[in-house]
Design a protein around this nucleic acid. Structure first.
Lengths: 320, 320
DNA sequence: CGCTGACCCAAGCGATACTTATGGCATGAG
DNA sequence: CTCATGCCATAAGTATCGCTTGGGTCAGCG
């Protein structure tokens, strides 16, 4: 810009040097001869010195022209390099996606999606960072990750009409006061987890009303999970007796397996690591938590990000 | 060119990245914001992928943007480098002049001019090559030298009117069928050279008519000089008895000093190396040979060439 | 809740750049 | 010695490109 030299004209000059004459360069460029002549004139005025000597059979570069040609070649090479690199990024044969996911997803669907992505685009560099949803969104807002996999519990008073079928649409919805958008990638039903010896442990496939366990000792999960536990129990008409708390689903199951408590765990956590000492039953009347993937408003137009989102959706669609 | 990326827009993009927002970049560039926005849009279309994410407080580079930025920086650096180098060439603090000169000039006025040039522009690289005028012009036409210092003998039948005063004008005159031009840089009178013991050796300052030496044995110079000798002697009404021939003015003088011949030598040759055994007298009625400097038609617009021509003219103007 | 700052969109106009047309100049062939 | 060809420069016309103007939306802040 400030350097007085027009980069585009330099490339035209390069063509002049290559072709050996203005007319020939014009033919190569698909232009007429005067067009090239004018470009050269402008370039020479910017340079402050003639770049070529007009000889009967064409042109001959002056020393200044030879100097400029070297730089023009370097610039052309750079341009080509840049185009190649961009092409690799667009074709997803290169690039980086950094994503953040909460633990139970990071141990199940996210690795599955990453595997899918690695198969489809071997050149992609995919990086995962574990973070609970609020922190994941903070990382996203700070630009430290490109995608955030989060969940949220549905409102405790379910409007029964909104079936789960339409909830799976990959339509981005704007989230809060920010330029972040999120889309639903799936659901994760909450399961009641009991000691194997517990009287309610059977039958495993029949949903169990939450109220049946009103008198039990409970173990809570992470902060938001515990809040949700309190909310759904309130919905069932009791206040759970929460004796323990941990966001580690392995630890939580260990407590339950030893008969110290019952718990409400998302299925993803159980998929990640199921303690053989626990029994699992579906809940009756509890809406599943919803899984989201979030990114900046227009980041889904970035090839690597789009590819990662697609892989996530596909991984969720397939059985984990 | 063919790389789909517009080099000029890359520099605009660099400004966007530097400024952190389109609006700020627009201010730096002295444009309005939509102008920058359009450039970015075009660049992103060429790139096939977003280069920045539009954030509330400005923009954030995507991976493609960061990639492109690196190349843009490299290109900007190249442009600056090119501008600096050109500037050095224009200011004559760098550059090369290659010149060809015939021997006696190359031993006298040309070194003087080269010294002048070196004093004025220490960075200049001046190179000299010895060549008789026809070869010097051939070198010039072939592009192997930038300047040719030549001479030519005036027509044997002088139209006495054209005084030598107007002949010194530095007005380029086109030469023959070519794109070469030449300008007169000076004159070089022809001197009669005799053995010291020769009866005509004195008085040294009084012009001697050529005819006085009609009966002597002669030594000829280079091909064109010998032709000229024959011509001027014919003009004086006799045919010289040429016994020896050499284009080496030292050898020639040695022959003369030993009384083996007389000769007609240009003053420059005598200035270059005067044999103490010879006497020199001006000729009566003989026009001096004319010295020229030749170059390609528009090469005098090249700074280094122009400087060298000026130095040559100045060196000729001053006493050698 | 208005205000500011940032970006986008659409439309209009002006400068840039390419074309057409013409001429000069050097070279090579008829 | 013309004549023809190929090269470049210049001038004028035109069309495109690019910048501006004047809308509008959105997010953040006092």
């Amino acid at each position: 810009m400030s350097s007085g030299l027009d980069a585009q004209r330099l490339l035209i000059f390069r063509e002049i040097a290559r072709a050996g004459s203005l007319a020939s360069a014009a033919r190569s460029l698909g232009w007429t001869q005067p067009a090239v002549s004018q470009h050269l004139r402008h370039l020479e005025r910017q340079a402050g010195t003639p770049l070529v000597l007009r000889r009967p059979r064409g042109v001959q570069l002056t020393e200044a022209g030879q100097t400029l040609l070297r730089h023009a070649e370097a610039i052309a090479t750079r341009l080509r390099l840049a185009a190649d690199e961009l092409d690799a990024l667009v074709r997803l044969s290169a690039g980086t996606v950094r994503l953040a996911a909460f633990p139970s997803a990071g141990a199940t669907v996210v690795p599955a999606a990453m595997g899918l992505l690695a198969d489809r685009h071997p050149g992609l560099d995919v990086r995962l960072r574990e973070a609970e949803p609020p922190q994941a969104l903070a990382l996203l807002a700070a630009g430290e990750v490109d995608l955030a996999v989060t969940f949220s519990h549905p409102a405790p008073r379910p409007d029964a009409a909104s079936g789960s079928g339409a909830a799976l649409t990959p339509e981005p919805e704007t989230v809060g006061a920010s330029d972040l958008v999120r889309m639903v990638v799936g659901e994760d039903p909450l399961m009641l987890v009991l000691p194997r010896s517990h009287p309610c442990a059977e039958p495993a496939d029949v949903p169990l009303p939450l109220g049946e366990l009103a008198g039990e000792k409970w173990v809570g999960g992470c902060e938001r999970c515990t809040a949700n536990l309190l909310a759904v129990c309130a919905g069932a008409g009791f206040v759970p007796d929460i004796r323990h708390g941990s966001d580690d689903y392995v630890l939580t199951q260990a407590l339950i397996a030893r008969g110290l408590a019952v718990g409400l765990l998302p299925r993803l956590a159980l998929d990640a690591a199921l303690d053989p000492g626990v029994a699992v039953r579906p809940t009756a009347g509890l809406r599943p938590r919803v899984l989201y993937v979030s990114h900046h408003r227009d980041a889904d137009r970035v090839p690597a990000v789009r590819g990662a989102v697609r892989a996530l959706l596909d991984a969720m669609a397939a059985p984990v």
